[in-house]
């Protein structure tokens, strides 16, 4: 959910772009973190832990904690809390530890 009105802040977001998450197309703002765009679309489960397959969201939002690793444009282990959204990006839920391709 995006915050439309704010008493103090105004958000100068980038232009609207489309991206694909697990096969479905979503809209986000260019340059915002992928995790922000996913949250705006109501998607909170970003990945799963390696051993116990527990759902994981983001925790720190600044690239510290490694909770939000996803596959972006085929590359595994991308921290989507800091990776910036671009037009046409393909974002996928990572299964296991990720495959190098």
């Amino acid at each position: 959910m995006r915050i439309e009105e704010h008493p103090i802040l105004s958000f100068n977001k980038g232009k609207k772009v489309n991206f694909v998450f697990d096969g479905k197309t979503y809209e986000g703002c260019e340059g915002e973190p992928i995790a922000a765009a996913l949250h705006a679309a109501g998607i909170m489960v970003l990945g799963h832990s390696h051993n116990k397959q527990r759902p994981r969201g983001f925790y720190c939002a600044i690239g510290n904690c490694s909770s939000c690793l996803m596959v972006v444009n085929g590359q595994p282990n991308v921290r989507v809390c800091t990776e910036k959204l671009q037009e046409g990006m393909v974002v996928e839920t990572q299964v296991g530890k990720g495959d190098l391709k």
């Binding site: 915050i3 977001k13 922000a36 949250h39 705006a40 939002a61």
Partner: peptide
């Protein structure tokens, strides 16, 4: 379950609840 800083970043920098 998020850190307070993460929540701040998400809502005040990126404008997402």
């Amino acid at each position: 379950i998020y850190g307070a800083g993460a929540v701040q970043t998400l809502m005040n920098v990126h404008g997402v609840a």
